[in-house]
């Protein structure tokens, strides 16, 4: 029945999982909104309107306005760009570092492994959010700095994952065969072993994006992340907190956007995990 290639099985399992599809749709919508921000946002996100300050949601401003009369919906649409960019770049950096160190650790073993594992232990015992906060505050909070610092502090999980994959794969026949025909270490690591450990890395990357989005919005909320006037969901929430007694819409909508986005990435990640793992395939014929 149907396409029996790995890709075919994956898509069939994935499309049957309605939660995973929902996650995928959320992420896709976020993409579209972020890319089309200049087209779909009803107002200029930075246009100040002194006559319509802190207006509750109505026909003209469906999500209300902030303390400078800026349209909250427009600011949230532009904020989606920040959220998307931070998520992908930060996780890209974290995944690259994690794969590199995990591969070295798992493939070479002995003291390389011990040094890297100890480094991971150290990184894991410093409360991550403290570290990020300190570094960002000292080097300045440009969006690039935020992405890099989140990336530099979130690679440990991937490294452990890749290490475990390497440990179990490096003794397998196909690796021995590659070595027997004289393949270099680099070639074995990248062309043979790494390729085979990509599935769990992909899953952890998608879930990692969710985490990075949360960290960015927390930083922006605390005033250390994306700086106004650049709109981000976190810094709109800061205004929500400042105007908590009078403007509930500034608190409710951006937070909802973060919640749905993170939920989307999580559902997508879990969905990919369930569809990609051959050990789960025989639970139902796929």
């Amino acid at each position: 029945m149907g396409d029996q290639t790995l890709r075919g099985i994956f898509w069939r399992r994935f499309s049957r999982n309605s939660l995973a599809v929902a996650g995928g749709v959320i992420v896709l919508l976020l993409f579209i909104v972020a890319v089309l921000a200049p087209v779909v946002s009803p107002y200029d996100p930075n246009a100040i309107d002194r006559h319509h300050v802190l207006m509750p949601p109505d026909i003209h401003h469906p999500l209300g306005t902030d303390d400078l009369g800026r349209d909250v919906l427009s600011r949230m649409i532009w904020g989606a760009r920040i959220s998307l960019a931070v998520g992908f770049v930060a996780v890209g950096i974290a995944t690259a570092i994690g794969m590199m160190l995990g591969a070295l650790s798992g493939y070479y073993g002995s003291w390389t492994d011990r040094v890297i594992m100890r480094f991971i232990d150290i990184m894991l015992s410093i409360p991550t959010f403290f570290l990020i906060l300190a570094v960002i505050a000292f080097i300045g909070s440009s969006i690039w700095n935020i992405m890099v610092v989140i990336g530099l502090t979130h690679w440990m999980g991937v490294a452990r994952l890749v290490r475990a994959e390497f440990l179990s794969l490096k003794e397998r026949e196909f690796v021995l065969a590659a070595r027997a025909i004289g393949a270099s270490d680099l070639r074995i690591i990248f062309r043979h072993v790494m390729i085979n450990s990509m599935a769990p890395v992909l899953v952890s990357a998608v879930l990692g994006i969710a985490g990075a989005v949360l960290v960015e919005s927390s930083l922006s909320f605390l005033g250390i992340g994306v700086q106004p006037p650049t709109p981000s969901w976190g810094n709109i929430l800061t205004l929500g907190k400042d105007n908590i007694e009078i403007a509930w819409w500034l608190s409710v909508f951006p937070g909802l956007a973060i919640l749905i986005t993170v939920l989307g990435y999580n559902l997508l990640g879990e969905g990919i995990r369930d569809s990609i793992d051959p050990r789960l395939w025989d639970r139902e014929r796929g």
């Binding site: 929430l237 908590i244 937070g255 919640l259 939920l263």
Partner: peptide, 22 residues
Amino acid sequence: VFIGFAMPSFWLALLLMILFGV
């Protein structure tokens, strides 16, 4: 649990403050 995972804690704090405090 899925919603709990995705909930930004500072947002939860704001909502609770609005509801129970304000």
